[in-house]
């Protein structure tokens, strides 16, 4: 019977997701983290809709800089995907691709620090800003700060992964786990970039 098959499949002894525990747990973490960002962006969307004087993004942000940040992060995601593809067959090249990802992450953080320092110099604070609705600063610093922290953690994870991959300590599977996290950071930026900087 179909019911018996369905029950036995989820009662142990099988692998319903057809993936190792590391990958399943990484996806569980990513789902949790995605919901966290969804909460931030949802409340931002509501606050923005209800504010009469939400400042236009093009007047506050340097969109050329944001474009460069997006280019760097998407490119670093591509190099990380290449690292995962190479991890099983060529460890040295995989490590080089992870190092390129690290460089991309550091450039992104540098550009974000530059953006923040300019906005802070112009009077932008989490509790007040010269451009319009007071909540603008709160959401901007919270959401981009939270994402930036994720990038920083990703850079640290990738440095460890690169070192351990080059020395042959880390199995190829772990490069894939680091890659999943890094792609998630890129994925979140796609949402922030569109919802905060363009709309």
């Amino acid at each position: 019977m179909t019911t018996t098959t369905a029950e036995s499949r989820w009662m142990g002894g099988e692998c319903p997701f057809a993936a190792g525990w590391k990958k399943v747990m990484m996806w569980v973490f990513i789902i949790g983290d995605a919901v966290l960002f969804a909460g931030f962006l949802s409340s931002y969307g509501y606050a923005r809709t209800m504010s009469a004087d939400w400042p236009p993004a093009s007047e506050v942000f340097n969109l050329g800089l944001i474009g460069l940040m997006t280019f760097v992060l998407i490119s670093s995601s591509a190099t990380m995907a290449a690292a995962v593809a190479m991890a099983k067959s060529d460890r040295a090249r995989a490590a080089r691709f992870v190092w390129m990802t690290v460089v991309g992450g550091l450039i992104f953080l540098g550009l974000q620090a530059y953006e923040w320092s300019h906005l802070i110099a112009e009077g932008g604070r989490p509790w007040a800003n010269p451009w319009g609705a007071s909540l603008f600063g709160a959401y901007f610093f919270m959401i981009t700060g939270f994402h930036g922290t994720h990038v920083l953690i990703g850079v640290i994870v990738n440095i460890v992964t690169a070192l351990r991959t080059a020395s042959g300590v880390t199995p190829a599977e772990n490069v894939e786990m680091a890659g999943l996290y890094w792609h998630f950071v890129d994925l979140v930026w796609v949402f922030i970039f569109t919802l905060f900087y363009l709309l």
Partner: peptide, 28 residues
């Protein structure tokens, strides 16, 4: 594109894909 190709969801089992998509979008 990022989820399906970079994160390999297109190569994962349907159970995992459904779990990820339903949980992320549903809870969101």
């Amino acid at each position: 594109l990022i989820a399906m190709i970079f994160m390999h969801l297109s190569k994962e089992s349907t159970d995992l894909v459904v779990t990820v998509v339903v949980c992320s979008l549903g809870f969101g």
